[in-house]
Design a binder for these strands. Structure first.
Lengths: 218, 218
DNA sequence: TATCGATATAGGGGATAACCTTAGTTAACG
DNA sequence: CGTTAACTAAGGTTATCCCCTATATCGATA
């Protein structure tokens, strides 16, 4: 029963998939059992292949990583998911873990860490990048009293998604198509976002969104 | 004489470097002669190693890719530089080419394209991702050679005024009131601005305007 | 000088998006 | 087991976008 641990990869960058796959395959006891470049593609595969763990990029075209996690865990509650990200923000780490991921790793980190993280989550543990780990622990231990200084924490996952796409210049219709929801739903989300962020008009919302996207994208 | 083409890689993501390196190395006639994760590091290496081409990520920590291109071409004018990016925007492509890069490639694109692009620039050509392609070539090659590097110079005073107010989040109505002109006139100006900046939709205009306002106000 | 191009102004009319209200379905929580 | 939050979506009104047309001004160039 010395069979290799099966790992599935979901990332929209072909070269990144290559880097991930190579790192995993050359590690003894681990092998890549499949890859996908979109969440939709991954969903079907994951149910069928039943891997031990999945490495998932949070920012995917169409359905994003968070949504994928929620969906797949609904069907496969025991799947260990390691999220990799280029965003070095608590924001995503926290949401990913809340959605049920077992680890959060920044792409910037070295290849060996990927294996460490995978080993840890497969053994039932949790893995967090150092930078994030400390902050998150602080946040949790120090109680919810010390609330976040970032009003974006108020947004739900879906709202944040809509917010981000707004900041990238997509219209309501385009956002609806991308997320496979009605334009009317997008409008509802935007109305809620405006409430939560306390902005008045669609223009102001857009302005905030653009600023935020610019500030976090690098 | 049958020596391999030497390629240098500059990217801050270890796994992405791995993906890039693997793709290049396994291609006959090409090999990776070095890597760097920052522009500073790369500068020294590039002068010393004198590779045939370099693959450079535009978004690097510290000095960004564009600056790196300018700097290195100052010392090695014949180095062929292929820019890879996760941003699928003309904005960066144009700046990169203006800085002297010979190609612009989105990371999303498949591995084989990387080789195609490298081959093309090493042979003295130019490679651009399809999406970006035609428009850009027209714009740059046919363009009056010594054009300003920021297209905002094309805007008339009034247009710039409208642009700026747009970036501050004002609606067409508000802009009209502020400038004591009809909403219709504001719309006309905005249409002209869109033409000049070559953006398609009102959302994109707004996005550019916000970015610009942000970039200049501090 | 007459013509051309760019600028600034503005309207018409159809398509699209924003805004406000209401409402159904889950899923989580105490 | 009710309450709340999240996600979904529709109807109806108003504002904005978008394409076309139009006029007056000013400076440049043929």
């Amino acid at each position: 029963m010395a069979t290799n641990k099966q790992i599935y990869i979901v990332d929209d960058h072909p070269l990144m998939r290559k880097g991930l796959a190579m790192t995993i395959d050359k590690e003894m006891g681990y092998e890549v059992c499949g890859q996908a470049e979109s969440a939709e593609e991954a969903l079907a595969d994951l149910v069928k292949l039943n891997p031990d763990a999945a490495v998932v990029d949070i920012s995917l075209p169409g359905m994003n990583g968070i949504e994928l996690i929620k969906n797949v865990l609904h069907q496969k509650p025991n799947l260990k998911i390691l999220v990799v990200s280029r965003h070095d923000e608590e924001l995503y780490a926290e949401r990913a873990l809340r959605a049920g991921a077992k680890g959060y790793l920044m792409k910037l980190e070295a290849a060996e860490i990927l294996i460490t993280a995978l080993r840890q989550i497969i053994n039932g543990g949790i893995y967090l990048s150092e930078k994030i780990g400390a902050k998150m622990i602080m946040k949790i231990t120090s109680g919810n009293a010390a609330k976040s200084d970032n009003p974006l924490d108020l947004l739900s996952d879906r709202e944040l998604e809509v917010f981000e796409l707004t900041g990238k210049g997509l219209s309501t219709r385009e956002i609806g198509e991308k997320l496979h929801i009605s334009v009317k739903t997008v409008e509802s989300h935007r109305a809620n976002i405006k409430d939560k962020l306390q902005v008045e008009t669609a223009n102001d919302l857009m302005r905030h969104a653009v600023r935020w996207v610019e500030g976090t994208s690098q």
